[in-house]
Simulated assay, not measured.
Amino acid sequence: MDLVKTDFQQLDERFKHVNGDEWMQRLHTGCRWTEGPAYFPAGRYLVFSDIPNDRTLRWDETTGHVGVFRQPSNYTNGHTVDRRGRLVSCEQGTRRVTRTEPGGSITVIAAEYRGKRLNSPNDVVEHSDGSIWFTDPSYGIDSDYEGYRAESEIGGCHVYRAAPDGTVAIVADDFSRPNGLAFSADESRLYIADTRQDPSHLRVFDVGESGKLTGGEIFATSDCGGFDGVRVDSEGQVWAAAHDGLHCFAPDGTRIGKLRIPEICSNFTFGGARGNELFITASSSLYTLRVTVNGARYPR
């Protein structure tokens, strides 16, 4: 385990209360491209993807050991943990969203839309009504590097909602490459990253009944590479992964600070017993540190 000096950059007075460990821990390195961290409080472990190596890894908090959780993993990218403690995964290779049941079996949540195969599901979140929301860019079919080269059957890169009854619907169809997404704590808003726009940006939507989205204005733009993973903390601040680390935005969209990471940051999640530990995937490594804010789904 390596230690890296923590670098919080304050850009606005509203960021002055955000701080944390003096040193970040690099828990693991040697991957090709890490992604999709998801923390399981009951088991005190984290799973994350090493996409080009076609494997999902597992870090055990009690031992510090990192081992293979699943290989092959169907080039899995993003993960989330649903409200019943089950792993939900975006499989780029099989072009589907799946759930791992407690006994280890796999349930397919979404694999097609109106009879056409999805592109390559990228990131995923769960709504409290049991619906699963995910982005579907084309990274897994653009080449054989992190999936299988293929033509898009749908002809676009969209954002989807899979209802509890299995119905899959497009909720946003005007993205270039939709990527990370996150609900506000009260689920009234949904933030979605569009990585391939110039500049890359976050958009914000109002969430209505049955998953209807309205709005969609640009919430924030990146000043260092494409936005990727997105999370919201318990104070309503929006965090987004970018090339130089994590960018933190006030609820009004002002960039108020950054947590700089020594590799290109792909994704992150809040975890630990109180939701105030950041787990960050960046290029070839997995990092962690305890901070002074909590994830939106955790009590203070």
Rank of each mutant, 00 (worst) to 15 (best):
D173I: 10
R203E: 03
R44H: 07
Q71W: 02
I264G: 06
H127Y: 14
Q92M: 15
G180V: 10
S283E: 15
R117S: 15
V293P: 09
D12N: 15
D21F: 01
T269M: 04
V66Y: 02
E101C: 09
R231M: 13
P41W: 00
D7F: 00
Y160T: 07
I154E: 00
S73D: 15
T29E: 03
P251A: 12
H247W: 08
W33Q: 04
L27P: 07
Y145C: 02
G78F: 11
S128E: 12
N294E: 11
D174S: 10
R274H: 09
E61C: 07
K16M: 01
I192W: 00
P52G: 11
R290N: 14
D165W: 02
D174L: 01
D165E: 12
C31M: 08
S176D: 11
Q71S: 07
P102H: 04
T56Y: 07
T76H: 06
T29M: 00
G215R: 06
A241P: 05
A172E: 10
R96I: 06
R189Y: 14
R149G: 14
D206K: 08
D198V: 15
E277Q: 09
F270K: 05
C248Q: 03
G130E: 10
H79R: 02
T107W: 06
V293T: 15
D50M: 12
T292A: 06
I218P: 04
T281G: 00
V108C: 09
M1S: 14
A111E: 15
G43S: 14
F270Q: 09
L213C: 10
D7A: 03
E146G: 11
L118A: 07
S152T: 15
D186T: 05
E22L: 07
R58I: 13
G43L: 14
T29I: 00
G147Q: 04
G226Q: 02
T63L: 08
G115F: 01
W59T: 03
I264K: 13
R55I: 08
H158R: 04
H243T: 12
P251D: 12
A169H: 14
G215L: 04
L11I: 04
